[in-house]
Simulated scan of single mutants.
Amino acid sequence: MTQGRTQSTLQTGPLVTCMKTLLMVFNFIFWVTGIVLLAVGIKTKIDWYKYLELSSVYHPETPYVLIGVGAVIVLIGSLGCCCTVKGHAFLLFMYCGFLALIFIVELSAGIALLIYRNKLEKGFKEGLNNAIEIYGEDGKDEYTNSFNDMQKTLKCCGIVSYEDWYKTPWEKKQKVPNSVPLSCCKVDDKSCKNTGLLASNSSTSDIYTRGCHKLVVDFIDGNLGPIGGVALGISFFQILGAILACFLAKSINKAKYEQVA
């Protein structure tokens, strides 16, 4: 009987060591994904918000969700490393529960991002139409600045084309007919510096002629699509971590029971 228990313990020992190694590898990858999500959330808040806030379907809390989920993953990934090293079954079961909870959150976030991506084209068309109508009005500096930043950064002008500006309330207030904002200028020439606008019918070579709508949709769509896909992939990857943590906890309990017996 003693010999049987000894053989069983010898078999369980290497299994626990192997499971700990695999779980540590998982914890490291899990921790890195948290850093990536945290960085994406910060980048979304700093760089992409000027495009996102022009959409009629923009949700200002989106960057904070990414930042929050990333920070929680980093924290729980660090906790997972401690749980694995200490080898306490209770802590490992608790870690497994945290992974299951994050799995649900990330799965929901990934699906939401993919659905949100499909609404972008319509949302941006509506949002840009609304923003160009109130461009330059008092108290609407947020939209005016966002539109200017978009045109400068993406090197575009108007929604579908630069001629969209000809029909706007802003253009009707200008002294020069068929004018576009300074942000449409390719170069900061003397005319732009003095007037803050450029008569596009005099020289279209001095302004951007491509519309911003397709460029914005392609830019955001090209980023949100991969992010949503990665979020879904990471969420299912966490199932592996939860299984490893659960098996390790059971193996540790089994090894303790065999030692006592």
Results as ranks from 00 to 15, higher is better:
G225V: 02
F236N: 03
P226D: 05
Q238N: 14
L240I: 14
A231E: 08
L224A: 13
A245C: 09
G228F: 01
L232P: 06
I227A: 13
Q238R: 05
C246L: 12
I234N: 07
P226A: 13
F247K: 02
P226I: 04
D221T: 14
F247T: 13
I227V: 15
F247P: 00
N253A: 13
P226H: 10
I252E: 09
S235V: 07
L224K: 02
L244Y: 11
G225D: 06
I239R: 01
I227D: 02
G222T: 09
I239P: 02
L232S: 12
L248A: 12
G229C: 12
A245Y: 11
P226N: 06
K250F: 11
F247H: 09
F236M: 14
K250Y: 03
Q238T: 11
I227P: 05
P226L: 08
I234A: 15
D221W: 07
A231C: 13
G228E: 06
F237E: 02
F236K: 09
Q238H: 15
V230W: 10
I239S: 01
F237N: 01
G225W: 03
V230F: 14
A242M: 14
Q238E: 15
L240S: 13
S251Y: 00
F236D: 03
S251I: 00
K250C: 15
I239Q: 01
G233K: 00
G225E: 07
G228N: 03
A231G: 12
F236L: 13
K250A: 15
L248N: 11
L240C: 15
I243G: 07
S251P: 02
K250I: 02
L232C: 13
I234C: 13
N223C: 00
G233W: 02
A245F: 11
N253D: 11
S251V: 00
